[in-house]
Structure formats: C-alpha cells, structure tokens
Nucleic acid binder design. Structure first.
Length: 474
DNA sequence: TTGCCTTTGAAGTAG
DNA sequence: CTACTTCAAAGGCAA
C-alpha cells in the first residue's frame, strides 16, 4: 500500500524534466522537507478556524435554512403519509425486498481484494433478507434501536421519519440523509473537518445508506420487470423533480379522481405537463454509486453536523480529505460495497449503459475547454508545463500521475498541492511506489481502483482547504 | 429554473 | 491503449 508520505518526495522515477514555475521552485523546496506533526497541527487549526469562521458567519443563515428545511420536511411528510408505510422501518429494506434475489457470484471473495468475512463487509448474513447483504444499507447499520428524540430536533437534520422512507438513490433535496448513529458518533476532539484523527470509520457508526427514493415506491421507479429500484428516477433528471413527480402522482391523481383532470390540473399541472404525462415516461436509470459516493452519502450528515456547513461543495471537500485519510481497509469496504452496487445494478439493468445518461447534464467542461484554448490550464499546456509525458510520468509539482491534469483542466492544480503549492500529498518514493494499475497486486482495493487514473491515495491530503483558493494562480 | 461548485470513481468517448 | 469527459450525490448560490 502506498503510503504516500515519503516526505522526501524525490524524483520517484519520474523522468520528466520539470519546468518549475515561479512559485513551484519554492514548492519543491517545501515539499522536500518532511511533513511534520507541527505542519499537521497548523493545517488542522487553520481548517478549524476556517470551519468556525464559516460557522459563525453563516449561523444565522443556517438557522434560517434549517427552519426552512423543517418546513419542507413537514410538507413532504404530508405527502408521504399518503404512501403506504413499509414495515421494518428501513425503506431500503422494503424496496429491496421487492427485488428478485440475485445471488451474485462472488468472484472477488476467494481471491478478490476484499474478504467480506475479514473486513466485515456485509455479504450474506443469516436472518436478513437475502438481497440486503448485497447492499450497503445493512452494512451501514440500519435503523438503530434508539434515536433520542433530540436527534430529530437537531437543527438542519431530519431523521427518524425520513429514515423510514429515505432512499439510497437520492432523496429529494431538503431531506437530509439520516445518519443512524448520529447520537453515538464519537465526539471529535476538533471540528475535525477532514481529518482522520477525528474520524472513525463510518462502517461502525454509520448511517443507513438510504438509497431508495420514496417516489420509487410509487409509480416511477419501476424496473421493467415491475421491480422497483432506486436507480430508476423520473425522466426529469434532476432529483428535485422527484418531489414534483410525487406530487403529481399522489395529490394530482387524487384530485383527478375527485374533480376531474381539468380542475385538478390547476393544482399541479399545466396543459403541457398533462400532455407530457400522457406520454410514456422513459425512466432514467442512474449510475450506481461508486465507493466515494457511498462514503459521501454516509458521512455527509456527520460533516454537516460537525462543521455546521450545508454547502455541498465545501462538505465534499472535507469528505474528500477524509476519504484520503481513511485506511486502505476502510476504503476497501466502500469499494466492496460499490462493487456490489454495480453488480446488482448490472443484474437489474443488463442493457443499461452509463452512456444512456450522457448529455443529460450540460457539457460545461467541454465548453470550458474550448474556451481555454489559450488557457495554461488546458491539458496539453499542463503537460508541457509540468513535464508530463502522457501517463508515464509524474506531475512535476505535485508528483501525481495524470490526475493533476484533471485538476488543471478545471483551472487549477489545487488538489495535489498545499496552500503554498508544495506537494503535501507526497509522491510515492521509489521504494514505496504505488501499485501499478496494470499489475494487479494483493491490494484489497478493487480492480477498478487499480486501473483508475490514480492509485488510491491513502495519505492525508490537506491541500483542498477552501481558504487556500487564493493560492491558485488564476 | 437551471447550472455551477466540489469531491472521487466508474465508465464512456475520442484519438 | 491512453487521455480525456461525463455522471453519480448534495445543497447553497448565482444568473
């Protein structure tokens, strides 16, 4: 396992001749000094301050938003109360229990990177629905037996009820994925946004991994076989529309029955909408979530609680750092879950392809790239700047393979660099080289991780601290 | 209302 | 085969 903290950050076999930028020379010097504990502490405190500042400055706004969330939640509950309740609390359980049980082969188990028995990744367990083991939900502790009443009152988070109805595939916005063991989660010594020291694996404390949108319990999320699946969402694409569709399907239909479609149409639907409703809806099957997405789903609520942040971009930054701070084993659990997700998805939708959803979002990156023809952050220029030789060399400043290009495409190479540009996330030393994606090892990480553009990074990565954005040359 | 932000990983396309 | 792009979740925010 490449513990990328060599500190030395030597050449690492990179043959590329680096062309340091004005500030990169300093970065190189800094990188060569070890990343000490004091550095870590400084970064921590800076992040803590950042979090606190953000918390203070936004507290009023946040409170307002929380009240709004509560209102929305109440509204949604009113809709959901119309929906037949499912037993056993767990929404995902109910939903998945509707699936045909597909005993998937476990090609990974004997020789695979992860042995479920060894790392407690839930596989088939006795006494549960046969399918649930394939999913993260049980693995992540379905409903805890006790949730203090004050939990549901925790600002900005709604819990026990949505827990019953939440879906692993996207709750509508406004409903925060419940973190089941929230009350029990460790008290972090620091606000701990993004630091492993204060983060205990979510697998022991975690949330339910709600996946099924309750709308899927209704009409929209139906697999052609009649099996509901969370990956199927209404064709509108945006999940906010999930709520919209639910309104249509429940209240509007009820109104139709009572008053006729014309009169009820004034409630929710315009003529065009009604017309559209008549058209056969082509359900959108979402991509299965990858390991990091699963991790985010689980940990988001915790981060929100700890940092009093609600902005997903900031939260995702924190989660990204935490992800890197996870041990290999901890990450492997999520990789395993993601693999099961993909397997299940593949079983349910054998003809589905990720290509099906292409073009549903704006191709902003392509547009940006066109605009950045003279942008030094364009990939080609990035390679030129950092001496990257396609995929064979390490990025000069950050010592990462390839991926720095990706960040540079976004206009900055922030990820691999610290606030001063030094490569905190030190490259693997020649002795401790990262696993070659092309050469499988005994790594617990899945093949997908191995062939990923980047070897899984397990060292701390404090580079994406929000306040450091000013360091971007842009 | 829609897209962006921000993260990583999987899978797609393009050359 | 490699490089690059798109999408998956999430919620605030801006246009």
């Amino acid at each position: 396992m490449p513990q990328l903290n060599g500190g030395g950050g030597d050449d690492l076999g990179a043959n590329d001749e680096m062309i340091p930028f004005k500030d990169e020379e300093d970065h190189e010097k800094i990188r060569e000094s070890a990343f000490t504990e004091s550095d870590l502490a400084d970064l921590k405190s800076s992040l803590v301050n950042e979090s606190e500042i953000s918390q203070n400055s936004n507290s009023a706004v946040i409170r307002r938003g929380q009240q709004e969330d509560q209102r929305i939640y109440t509204d949604k509950r009113e809709h959901l109360d119309d929906v037949p309740k499912h037993q056993d609390g767990g929404m995902y359980k109910a939903s998945y229990s509707g699936y045909p049980f597909l005993m998937l082969p476990e090609p990974y188990l004997p020789n695979g990177p992860v042995s479920p028995s060894s790392n407690k990744v839930s596989v088939v367990q006795q006494g549960m629905h046969p399918l649930t083991p394939l999913l993260p939900y049980d693995h992540f502790n379905p409903s805890p037996p006790h949730i203090p009443t004050d939990v549901s009152q925790k600002p900005g988070v709604h819990r026990h009820q949505s827990q019953e109805i939440s879906g692993f595939y996207s709750l509508p916005q406004g409903q925060i994925t419940p973190s089941m063991n929230w009350p029990n989660q460790p008290v972090y010594p620091l606000p701990s946004c993004g630091f492993r020291q204060s983060f205990s694996s979510g697998l022991q404390s975690s949330s339910s991994f709600p996946r099924f949108s309750h709308s899927l319990m209704l009409q929209s999320g139906m697999h052609p076989t009649g099996i509901p699946h969370p990956a199927i969402v209404p064709p509108s694409g945006k999940q906010e529309h999930d709520q919209f569709d639910r309104n249509i399907y429940t209240s509007s239909r009820a109104n139709d029955l009572l008053f006729g479609p014309v009169r009820s149409g004034i409630v929710f639907k315009s003529h065009a909408e009604m017309k559209r409703e008549k058209e056969p809806k082509k359900p959108v099957i979402k991509k299965p979530l990858n390991a990091f997405m699963l991790y985010m789903k689980e940990m988001r609520a915790k981060v929100i609680a700890e940092c009093t942040l609600k902005e997903s971009a900031a939260i995702n930054q924190i989660l990204g750092r935490r992800w890197h701070a996870l041990t290999r084993e901890e990450q492997a659990k999520y990789y395993e879950l993601a693999r099961k997700e993909r397997q299940l998805h593949m079983q349910l939708y054998p003809s589905w392809s990720a290509r099906d959803n292409y073009g549903k979002k704006k191709r902003r990156k392509r547009d940006k790239q066109q605009d950045s023809g003279t942008d030094p952050s364009s990939p080609k220029k990035c390679r030129a700047r950092f001496g990257l030789n396609q995929q064979t060399d390490w990025c000069g400043p950050c010592r990462r393979k390839k991926k720095c290009i990706r960040y540079l495409q976004r206009g900055r190479c922030a990820s691999p660099h610290s606030s001063d540009g030094s490569a905190i996330d030190s490259p693997p030393s020649p002795v401790n080289h990262p696993p070659n994606p092309a050469s499988p090892t005994s790594s617990p990480l899945p093949q997908s991780a191995k062939r990923s553009a980047h070897p899984p990074r397990l060292s701390l990565d404090f580079s994406r601290i929000k306040t450091e954005s000013h360091n971007n040359p842009d």
